[in-house]
Design a protein around this nucleic acid. Structure first.
Lengths: 212, 212
DNA sequence: GGTGAAGTGCAATGAGCGTTGTATTTATTG
DNA sequence: CAATAAATACAACGCTCATTGCACTTCACC
Protein backbone atom coordinates (compact mmCIF):
# COMPACT_ATOMS: atom_id res chain seq x y z
CA UNK A 1 0.00 0.00 0.00
CA UNK A 2 1.17 3.51 -0.65
CA UNK A 3 1.93 5.60 2.32
CA UNK A 4 0.22 8.86 2.93
CA UNK A 5 3.15 10.50 1.16
CA UNK A 6 3.98 9.16 -2.23
CA UNK A 7 3.07 11.30 -5.16
CA UNK A 8 4.31 14.81 -5.38
CA UNK A 9 4.48 16.62 -2.08
CA UNK A 10 7.42 16.62 0.22
CA UNK A 11 7.01 14.33 3.18
CA UNK A 12 8.46 15.74 6.29
CA UNK A 13 8.45 15.20 9.92
CA UNK A 14 8.62 12.22 12.18
CA UNK A 15 6.64 9.17 11.27
CA UNK A 16 7.75 5.62 11.75
CA UNK A 17 6.18 3.94 8.73
CA UNK A 18 9.09 5.39 6.81
CA UNK A 19 10.85 2.09 7.35
CA UNK A 20 8.11 0.16 5.59
CA UNK A 21 8.14 2.66 2.75
CA UNK A 22 11.89 2.28 2.37
CA UNK A 23 11.66 -1.51 2.34
CA UNK A 24 8.89 -1.35 -0.25
CA UNK A 25 10.69 1.07 -2.52
CA UNK A 26 13.95 -0.79 -2.16
CA UNK A 27 12.21 -4.04 -3.06
CA UNK A 28 10.85 -2.49 -6.23
CA UNK A 29 14.19 -1.10 -7.33
CA UNK A 30 16.35 -4.04 -6.25
CA UNK A 31 13.99 -6.48 -7.96
CA UNK A 32 14.03 -4.55 -11.20
CA UNK A 33 17.63 -3.38 -11.39
CA UNK A 34 19.59 -5.72 -9.16
CA UNK A 35 21.85 -4.84 -6.28
CA UNK A 36 24.69 -3.15 -8.12
CA UNK A 37 22.62 -1.27 -10.66
CA UNK A 38 20.17 0.01 -8.08
CA UNK A 39 21.23 3.38 -6.73
CA UNK A 40 20.39 4.81 -3.36
CA UNK A 41 18.95 7.89 -5.03
CA UNK A 42 16.54 5.79 -7.09
CA UNK A 43 15.49 3.81 -4.03
CA UNK A 44 14.96 6.95 -2.02
CA UNK A 45 12.81 8.43 -4.75
CA UNK A 46 10.77 5.23 -5.07
CA UNK A 47 10.28 5.15 -1.32
CA UNK A 48 9.42 8.83 -1.03
CA UNK A 49 12.18 9.54 1.43
CA UNK A 50 15.50 11.30 1.33
CA UNK A 51 18.73 9.41 0.87
CA UNK A 52 19.90 10.60 4.24
CA UNK A 53 16.96 8.92 5.94
CA UNK A 54 18.02 5.61 4.46
CA UNK A 55 21.40 5.95 6.08
CA UNK A 56 19.73 6.88 9.34
CA UNK A 57 17.90 3.54 9.33
CA UNK A 58 20.43 1.22 7.75
CA UNK A 59 24.18 1.07 7.97
CA UNK A 60 24.49 1.04 4.20
CA UNK A 61 23.30 -0.39 0.93
CA UNK A 62 24.27 -3.95 1.82
CA UNK A 63 22.32 -3.94 5.07
CA UNK A 64 19.30 -2.46 3.30
CA UNK A 65 19.47 -5.21 0.71
CA UNK A 66 19.56 -7.92 3.35
CA UNK A 67 16.64 -6.34 5.17
CA UNK A 68 14.64 -6.27 1.95
CA UNK A 69 15.42 -9.93 1.34
CA UNK A 70 14.28 -10.98 4.79
CA UNK A 71 11.14 -8.87 4.73
CA UNK A 72 10.03 -9.99 1.29
CA UNK A 73 10.80 -13.63 2.00
CA UNK A 74 8.86 -13.59 5.25
CA UNK A 75 5.84 -11.92 3.70
CA UNK A 76 5.78 -14.20 0.66
CA UNK A 77 6.30 -17.33 2.73
CA UNK A 78 3.39 -16.29 4.92
CA UNK A 79 1.09 -15.93 1.92
CA UNK A 80 2.28 -19.13 0.30
CA UNK A 81 1.72 -21.15 3.46
CA UNK A 82 -1.81 -19.79 3.62
CA UNK A 83 -2.41 -20.96 0.06
CA UNK A 84 -1.01 -24.39 0.87
CA UNK A 85 -3.12 -24.85 3.97
CA UNK A 86 -6.27 -23.54 2.38
CA UNK A 87 -6.20 -26.08 -0.43
CA UNK A 88 -4.57 -29.11 1.15
CA UNK A 89 -5.94 -29.12 4.70
CA UNK A 90 -9.01 -31.02 3.66
CA UNK A 91 -8.61 -33.00 0.44
CA UNK A 92 -11.68 -34.50 -1.17
CA UNK A 93 -10.60 -34.96 -4.79
CA UNK A 94 -6.82 -35.12 -4.81
CA UNK A 95 -6.26 -34.16 -8.45
CA UNK A 96 -8.83 -31.38 -8.40
CA UNK A 97 -7.55 -29.95 -5.14
CA UNK A 98 -3.95 -30.05 -6.33
CA UNK A 99 -4.94 -28.23 -9.51
CA UNK A 100 -6.80 -25.55 -7.60
CA UNK A 101 -3.83 -25.20 -5.32
CA UNK A 102 -1.50 -24.91 -8.29
CA UNK A 103 -3.67 -22.33 -9.99
CA UNK A 104 -3.62 -20.04 -7.01
CA UNK A 105 0.05 -20.78 -6.42
CA UNK A 106 1.06 -19.85 -9.94
CA UNK A 107 -1.27 -16.89 -10.33
CA UNK A 108 0.59 -13.63 -9.91
CA UNK A 109 -1.83 -12.21 -7.37
CA UNK A 110 -0.78 -14.77 -4.82
CA UNK A 111 2.57 -13.13 -4.20
CA UNK A 112 3.95 -9.95 -5.65
CA UNK A 113 5.89 -10.72 -8.79
CA UNK A 114 8.50 -8.32 -7.49
CA UNK A 115 9.46 -10.92 -4.94
CA UNK A 116 10.32 -13.49 -7.59
CA UNK A 117 12.33 -10.96 -9.51
CA UNK A 118 14.20 -10.36 -6.26
CA UNK A 119 14.80 -14.09 -5.92
CA UNK A 120 16.39 -14.08 -9.37
CA UNK A 121 18.64 -11.27 -8.21
CA UNK A 122 19.58 -13.27 -5.11
CA UNK A 123 20.40 -16.34 -7.18
CA UNK A 124 22.64 -14.27 -9.41
CA UNK A 125 24.26 -12.34 -6.58
CA UNK A 126 24.56 -15.23 -4.14
CA UNK A 127 28.34 -15.26 -4.27
CA UNK A 128 28.44 -11.66 -3.03
CA UNK A 129 25.93 -12.00 -0.19
CA UNK A 130 27.04 -13.07 3.29
CA UNK A 131 26.34 -16.73 3.82
CA UNK A 132 24.47 -16.02 7.03
CA UNK A 133 21.99 -13.84 5.18
CA UNK A 134 21.46 -16.49 2.52
CA UNK A 135 20.85 -19.16 5.14
CA UNK A 136 18.44 -16.99 7.10
CA UNK A 137 16.54 -16.22 3.90
CA UNK A 138 16.32 -19.90 2.98
CA UNK A 139 15.18 -20.85 6.44
CA UNK A 140 12.45 -18.23 6.80
CA UNK A 141 11.41 -18.41 3.16
CA UNK A 142 11.64 -21.32 0.74
CA UNK A 143 12.59 -24.05 3.21
CA UNK A 144 9.80 -23.11 5.59
CA UNK A 145 7.26 -23.20 2.78
CA UNK A 146 8.63 -26.46 1.47
CA UNK A 147 8.38 -28.12 4.87
CA UNK A 148 4.79 -27.01 5.16
CA UNK A 149 3.98 -28.58 1.82
CA UNK A 150 5.97 -31.69 2.69
CA UNK A 151 3.92 -32.13 5.85
CA UNK A 152 0.70 -32.19 3.89
CA UNK A 153 2.16 -34.67 1.41
CA UNK A 154 3.20 -36.95 4.24
CA UNK A 155 -0.29 -36.85 5.71
CA UNK A 156 -1.81 -37.58 2.31
CA UNK A 157 0.60 -40.46 1.95
CA UNK A 158 -0.43 -41.86 5.35
CA UNK A 159 -4.03 -41.63 4.17
CA UNK A 160 -3.13 -43.78 1.18
CA UNK A 161 -3.79 -41.07 -1.38
CA UNK A 162 -0.13 -40.78 -2.32
CA UNK A 163 2.93 -42.99 -2.23
CA UNK A 164 5.75 -40.80 -0.98
CA UNK A 165 9.00 -41.96 0.58
CA UNK A 166 10.99 -38.72 0.62
CA UNK A 167 8.47 -36.02 1.45
CA UNK A 168 10.85 -33.12 0.97
CA UNK A 169 11.83 -34.37 -2.44
CA UNK A 170 8.20 -34.87 -3.40
CA UNK A 171 7.41 -31.31 -2.36
CA UNK A 172 10.18 -30.01 -4.59
CA UNK A 173 8.90 -32.12 -7.46
CA UNK A 174 5.37 -30.81 -7.11
CA UNK A 175 6.55 -27.22 -6.94
CA UNK A 176 8.77 -27.41 -9.99
CA UNK A 177 6.11 -29.26 -11.99
CA UNK A 178 3.35 -26.74 -11.36
CA UNK A 179 5.81 -23.93 -12.10
CA UNK A 180 7.41 -25.39 -15.22
CA UNK A 181 6.44 -23.42 -18.27
CA UNK A 182 8.46 -22.81 -21.42
CA UNK A 183 9.33 -19.13 -21.43
CA UNK A 184 9.88 -17.61 -24.83
CA UNK A 185 12.22 -15.33 -22.98
CA UNK A 186 12.83 -14.63 -19.28
CA UNK A 187 10.57 -12.03 -17.83
CA UNK A 188 7.61 -12.84 -20.04
CA UNK A 189 4.56 -13.45 -17.91
CA UNK A 190 2.41 -16.42 -18.86
CA UNK A 191 -1.20 -15.83 -19.77
CA UNK A 192 -4.11 -17.29 -17.84
CA UNK A 193 -4.55 -20.10 -20.35
CA UNK A 194 -0.87 -20.93 -20.23
CA UNK A 195 -1.00 -21.05 -16.45
CA UNK A 196 -3.96 -23.40 -16.54
CA UNK A 197 -2.28 -25.69 -19.03
CA UNK A 198 0.97 -25.61 -17.08
CA UNK A 199 -0.69 -26.45 -13.78
CA UNK A 200 -2.98 -29.19 -15.05
CA UNK A 201 -0.24 -30.99 -16.97
CA UNK A 202 2.12 -30.50 -14.05
CA UNK A 203 -0.30 -32.00 -11.55
CA UNK A 204 -1.04 -34.86 -13.90
CA UNK A 205 2.66 -35.58 -14.29
CA UNK A 206 3.12 -35.38 -10.53
CA UNK A 207 0.36 -37.91 -9.96
CA UNK A 208 0.76 -40.39 -12.81
CA UNK A 209 4.02 -39.78 -14.63
CA UNK A 210 4.52 -40.49 -18.29
CA UNK A 211 4.68 -44.26 -18.43
CA UNK A 212 1.58 -46.02 -19.75
CA UNK B 1 51.72 -19.40 -26.32
CA UNK B 2 50.54 -21.80 -28.93
CA UNK B 3 50.02 -19.96 -32.19
CA UNK B 4 47.14 -21.61 -33.97
CA UNK B 5 46.22 -20.47 -37.44
CA UNK B 6 42.74 -21.31 -38.58
CA UNK B 7 41.46 -21.06 -42.11
CA UNK B 8 39.16 -18.23 -41.13
CA UNK B 9 40.03 -14.67 -42.05
CA UNK B 10 43.50 -14.18 -40.64
CA UNK B 11 44.75 -10.84 -39.52
CA UNK B 12 48.15 -9.65 -40.45
CA UNK B 13 49.87 -8.80 -37.25
CA UNK B 14 48.61 -10.66 -34.23
CA UNK B 15 47.04 -13.98 -33.53
CA UNK B 16 43.31 -14.42 -33.88
CA UNK B 17 42.70 -16.63 -30.86
CA UNK B 18 42.70 -13.43 -28.84
CA UNK B 19 38.98 -13.29 -29.50
CA UNK B 20 38.43 -16.72 -27.99
CA UNK B 21 40.54 -15.76 -25.00
CA UNK B 22 38.48 -12.64 -24.48
CA UNK B 23 35.22 -14.56 -24.69
CA UNK B 24 36.53 -17.13 -22.23
CA UNK B 25 37.78 -14.58 -19.73
CA UNK B 26 34.65 -12.52 -20.05
CA UNK B 27 32.53 -15.60 -19.44
CA UNK B 28 34.42 -16.32 -16.25
CA UNK B 29 34.07 -12.80 -14.90
CA UNK B 30 30.51 -12.16 -16.07
CA UNK B 31 29.36 -15.50 -14.63
CA UNK B 32 30.93 -14.81 -11.26
CA UNK B 33 30.31 -11.08 -10.85
CA UNK B 34 27.40 -10.26 -13.13
CA UNK B 35 27.25 -7.64 -15.82
CA UNK B 36 27.38 -4.47 -13.76
CA UNK B 37 29.90 -5.63 -11.20
CA UNK B 38 32.26 -7.05 -13.81
CA UNK B 39 34.84 -4.50 -14.87
CA UNK B 40 36.61 -4.34 -18.18
CA UNK B 41 39.95 -4.33 -16.41
CA UNK B 42 39.13 -7.57 -14.60
CA UNK B 43 37.95 -9.18 -17.83
CA UNK B 44 41.07 -8.08 -19.66
CA UNK B 45 43.28 -9.50 -16.96
CA UNK B 46 41.37 -12.80 -16.93
CA UNK B 47 41.65 -13.01 -20.72
CA UNK B 48 45.32 -12.06 -20.81
CA UNK B 49 44.78 -9.11 -23.12
CA UNK B 50 44.81 -5.37 -22.74
CA UNK B 51 41.64 -3.42 -22.20
CA UNK B 52 42.27 -1.58 -25.43
CA UNK B 53 42.16 -4.82 -27.40
CA UNK B 54 38.69 -5.51 -26.04
CA UNK B 55 37.48 -2.22 -27.47
CA UNK B 56 39.18 -3.06 -30.77
CA UNK B 57 37.03 -6.21 -31.05
CA UNK B 58 33.76 -5.11 -29.47
CA UNK B 59 31.94 -1.84 -29.50
CA UNK B 60 31.64 -1.87 -25.74
CA UNK B 61 30.79 -3.81 -22.64
CA UNK B 62 27.22 -4.52 -23.73
CA UNK B 63 28.26 -6.01 -27.06
CA UNK B 64 30.89 -8.14 -25.35
CA UNK B 65 28.28 -9.43 -22.93
CA UNK B 66 25.93 -10.41 -25.74
CA UNK B 67 28.74 -12.14 -27.61
CA UNK B 68 29.61 -14.10 -24.48
CA UNK B 69 25.99 -15.14 -24.06
CA UNK B 70 25.70 -16.39 -27.62
CA UNK B 71 29.03 -18.20 -27.56
CA UNK B 72 28.43 -19.93 -24.25
CA UNK B 73 24.88 -20.89 -25.17
CA UNK B 74 25.92 -22.37 -28.49
CA UNK B 75 28.75 -24.37 -26.98
CA UNK B 76 26.67 -25.67 -24.09
CA UNK B 77 23.73 -26.54 -26.32
CA UNK B 78 26.09 -28.49 -28.56
CA UNK B 79 27.37 -30.55 -25.62
CA UNK B 80 23.93 -31.09 -24.16
CA UNK B 81 22.52 -32.32 -27.46
CA UNK B 82 25.39 -34.77 -27.68
CA UNK B 83 24.50 -36.08 -24.23
CA UNK B 84 20.84 -36.40 -25.18
CA UNK B 85 21.55 -38.26 -28.38
CA UNK B 86 24.12 -40.53 -26.84
CA UNK B 87 21.75 -41.85 -24.19
CA UNK B 88 18.38 -41.71 -25.90
CA UNK B 89 19.15 -42.71 -29.48
CA UNK B 90 18.88 -46.39 -28.67
CA UNK B 91 16.83 -47.15 -25.58
CA UNK B 92 16.90 -50.66 -24.19
CA UNK B 93 15.84 -50.16 -20.56
CA UNK B 94 13.92 -46.89 -20.40
CA UNK B 95 14.36 -46.18 -16.69
CA UNK B 96 18.03 -47.14 -16.67
CA UNK B 97 18.81 -45.13 -19.78
CA UNK B 98 16.99 -42.07 -18.46
CA UNK B 99 18.93 -42.31 -15.21
CA UNK B 100 22.24 -42.58 -17.02
CA UNK B 101 21.25 -39.65 -19.16
CA UNK B 102 20.28 -37.63 -16.10
CA UNK B 103 23.51 -38.47 -14.32
CA UNK B 104 25.63 -37.16 -17.14
CA UNK B 105 23.28 -34.23 -17.63
CA UNK B 106 23.49 -33.11 -14.03
CA UNK B 107 27.17 -33.84 -13.54
CA UNK B 108 29.19 -30.65 -13.70
CA UNK B 109 31.68 -31.99 -16.24
CA UNK B 110 29.00 -32.12 -18.90
CA UNK B 111 28.87 -28.37 -19.28
CA UNK B 112 31.03 -25.80 -17.59
CA UNK B 113 29.33 -24.66 -14.42
CA UNK B 114 30.31 -21.15 -15.47
CA UNK B 115 27.63 -21.32 -18.12
CA UNK B 116 24.87 -21.93 -15.61
CA UNK B 117 26.10 -19.10 -13.44
CA UNK B 118 25.89 -16.96 -16.56
CA UNK B 119 22.32 -18.11 -17.12
CA UNK B 120 21.46 -16.95 -13.61
CA UNK B 121 22.94 -13.59 -14.49
CA UNK B 122 20.86 -13.45 -17.66
CA UNK B 123 17.69 -14.28 -15.77
CA UNK B 124 18.39 -11.51 -13.33
CA UNK B 125 19.47 -8.98 -15.94
CA UNK B 126 16.85 -9.87 -18.56
CA UNK B 127 15.06 -6.54 -18.26
CA UNK B 128 18.25 -4.72 -19.25
CA UNK B 129 19.22 -6.91 -22.21
CA UNK B 130 17.89 -6.18 -25.71
CA UNK B 131 14.99 -8.45 -26.49
CA UNK B 132 16.59 -9.55 -29.75
CA UNK B 133 19.61 -10.87 -27.87
CA UNK B 134 17.42 -12.76 -25.42
CA UNK B 135 15.44 -14.35 -28.19
CA UNK B 136 18.55 -15.35 -30.13
CA UNK B 137 19.98 -16.89 -26.99
CA UNK B 138 16.80 -18.84 -26.30
CA UNK B 139 16.60 -20.07 -29.86
CA UNK B 140 20.21 -21.23 -30.17
CA UNK B 141 20.40 -22.47 -26.60
CA UNK B 142 17.64 -23.79 -24.35
CA UNK B 143 14.88 -24.06 -26.96
CA UNK B 144 17.10 -25.94 -29.38
CA UNK B 145 18.09 -28.40 -26.68
CA UNK B 146 14.52 -28.79 -25.52
CA UNK B 147 13.31 -29.56 -29.01
CA UNK B 148 15.97 -32.19 -29.40
CA UNK B 149 14.85 -33.87 -26.19
CA UNK B 150 11.20 -33.52 -27.18
CA UNK B 151 11.89 -35.32 -30.45
CA UNK B 152 13.28 -38.32 -28.60
CA UNK B 153 10.33 -38.36 -26.24
CA UNK B 154 7.93 -38.33 -29.17
CA UNK B 155 9.71 -41.27 -30.75
CA UNK B 156 9.65 -43.16 -27.46
CA UNK B 157 5.97 -42.40 -27.21
CA UNK B 158 5.35 -43.74 -30.70
CA UNK B 159 7.21 -46.89 -29.67
CA UNK B 160 4.77 -47.29 -26.79
CA UNK B 161 7.37 -46.77 -24.08
CA UNK B 162 5.88 -43.46 -22.99
CA UNK B 163 2.50 -41.82 -23.11
CA UNK B 164 3.15 -38.21 -24.10
CA UNK B 165 0.65 -35.80 -25.58
CA UNK B 166 2.57 -32.52 -25.34
CA UNK B 167 6.17 -33.43 -26.11
CA UNK B 168 7.59 -30.00 -25.35
CA UNK B 169 5.88 -29.95 -21.98
CA UNK B 170 7.13 -33.44 -21.21
CA UNK B 171 10.68 -32.41 -22.06
CA UNK B 172 10.43 -29.50 -19.65
CA UNK B 173 9.06 -31.79 -16.97
CA UNK B 174 11.89 -34.27 -17.39
CA UNK B 175 14.51 -31.55 -17.26
CA UNK B 176 13.17 -29.86 -14.14
CA UNK B 177 12.72 -33.21 -12.38
CA UNK B 178 16.27 -34.42 -12.95
CA UNK B 179 17.57 -31.01 -11.93
CA UNK B 180 15.40 -30.46 -8.86
CA UNK B 181 17.45 -30.57 -5.74
CA UNK B 182 16.93 -28.73 -2.47
CA UNK B 183 19.75 -26.26 -2.14
CA UNK B 184 20.72 -25.34 1.36
CA UNK B 185 21.73 -22.08 -0.25
CA UNK B 186 22.20 -21.00 -3.86
CA UNK B 187 25.63 -21.64 -5.23
CA UNK B 188 26.21 -24.78 -3.22
CA UNK B 189 27.18 -27.60 -5.54
CA UNK B 190 25.53 -30.94 -4.85
CA UNK B 191 27.72 -33.91 -4.02
CA UNK B 192 27.85 -37.03 -6.17
CA UNK B 193 25.49 -38.87 -3.85
CA UNK B 194 23.04 -36.00 -3.88
CA UNK B 195 23.12 -35.93 -7.68
CA UNK B 196 22.45 -39.65 -7.85
CA UNK B 197 19.54 -39.39 -5.45
CA UNK B 198 18.17 -36.36 -7.26
CA UNK B 199 18.33 -38.00 -10.68
CA UNK B 200 16.95 -41.38 -9.67
CA UNK B 201 14.02 -39.94 -7.77
CA UNK B 202 13.45 -37.44 -10.56
CA UNK B 203 13.35 -40.10 -13.25
CA UNK B 204 11.10 -42.26 -11.09
CA UNK B 205 8.70 -39.36 -10.62
CA UNK B 206 8.80 -38.62 -14.34
CA UNK B 207 7.90 -42.20 -15.18
CA UNK B 208 5.43 -43.20 -12.48
CA UNK B 209 4.33 -40.16 -10.52
CA UNK B 210 3.33 -40.28 -6.87
CA UNK B 211 -0.08 -41.91 -6.97
CA UNK B 212 -0.22 -45.56 -5.91
C1' DG C 1 64.18 -6.08 -44.72
C1' DG C 2 60.08 -3.47 -45.08
C1' DT C 3 55.12 -2.86 -44.26
C1' DG C 4 50.94 -2.59 -42.15
C1' DA C 5 47.55 -4.43 -39.22
C1' DA C 6 46.87 -6.21 -34.56
C1' DG C 7 48.13 -5.73 -29.88
C1' DT C 8 49.93 -3.08 -25.79
C1' DG C 9 50.80 0.51 -22.20
C1' DC C 10 49.64 4.78 -20.39
C1' DA C 11 47.10 8.57 -19.37
C1' DA C 12 43.11 11.21 -19.26
C1' DT C 13 38.26 12.27 -19.39
C1' DG C 14 33.87 12.17 -17.62
C1' DA C 15 30.15 10.29 -15.43
C1' DG C 16 27.88 7.75 -11.67
C1' DC C 17 27.50 6.47 -7.11
C1' DG C 18 28.04 5.36 -1.98
C1' DT C 19 28.64 7.81 1.92
C1' DT C 20 28.95 11.60 5.28
C1' DG C 21 28.55 16.27 7.45
C1' DT C 22 25.70 20.18 8.40
C1' DA C 23 22.20 23.33 8.81
C1' DT C 24 17.24 23.48 8.48
C1' DT C 25 12.49 21.92 8.84
C1' DT C 26 8.73 19.21 10.65
C1' DA C 27 5.90 16.56 13.90
C1' DT C 28 5.35 14.70 18.37
C1' DT C 29 5.23 15.17 23.31
C1' DG C 30 5.19 17.11 27.89
C1' DC D 1 5.05 27.00 23.75
C1' DA D 2 9.43 24.68 24.31
C1' DA D 3 12.10 20.64 23.69
C1' DT D 4 13.34 16.79 21.24
C1' DA D 5 13.74 13.37 17.77
C1' DA D 6 13.13 12.35 13.08
C1' DA D 7 13.35 13.81 8.27
C1' DT D 8 15.04 16.73 4.65
C1' DA D 9 17.92 19.51 1.36
C1' DC D 10 22.30 20.48 -0.05
C1' DA D 11 26.91 19.91 -0.89
C1' DA D 12 31.02 17.65 -0.93
C1' DC D 13 34.49 13.80 -0.83
C1' DG D 14 36.45 9.81 -2.68
C1' DC D 15 36.33 6.06 -5.39
C1' DT D 16 35.31 3.04 -9.32
C1' DC D 17 34.80 2.43 -13.96
C1' DA D 18 33.64 2.72 -19.11
C1' DT D 19 35.60 4.75 -22.86
C1' DT D 20 38.95 7.07 -25.88
C1' DG D 21 43.25 8.93 -27.87
C1' DC D 22 48.05 8.31 -28.76
C1' DA D 23 52.53 6.62 -29.12
C1' DC D 24 54.83 2.34 -29.28
C1' DT D 25 55.74 -2.62 -30.08
C1' DT D 26 55.10 -7.12 -32.17
C1' DC D 27 54.38 -10.23 -35.73
C1' DA D 28 53.04 -12.40 -40.23
C1' DC D 29 53.78 -12.02 -44.86
C1' DC D 30 55.43 -9.58 -49.31
Amino acid sequence: MTSKNSARGRPRGGSTDKRAAMLDGALTVFARDGYTRASIDTIAEAAGVSTRTIYNHFRGKAELFEAVIQASAARTAQRQIEVIDRHLRKVTDLAADLIEFGLEWASPNAGPSEHFALVRQINAEAAHIPEAAIEAWQENGPLRVRRELAGHLRRLSEQGLLRVTNTDRAAVHLLVLIGAWNPSYPGAEPSAEEITEMVTTGVHAFLHGYVP
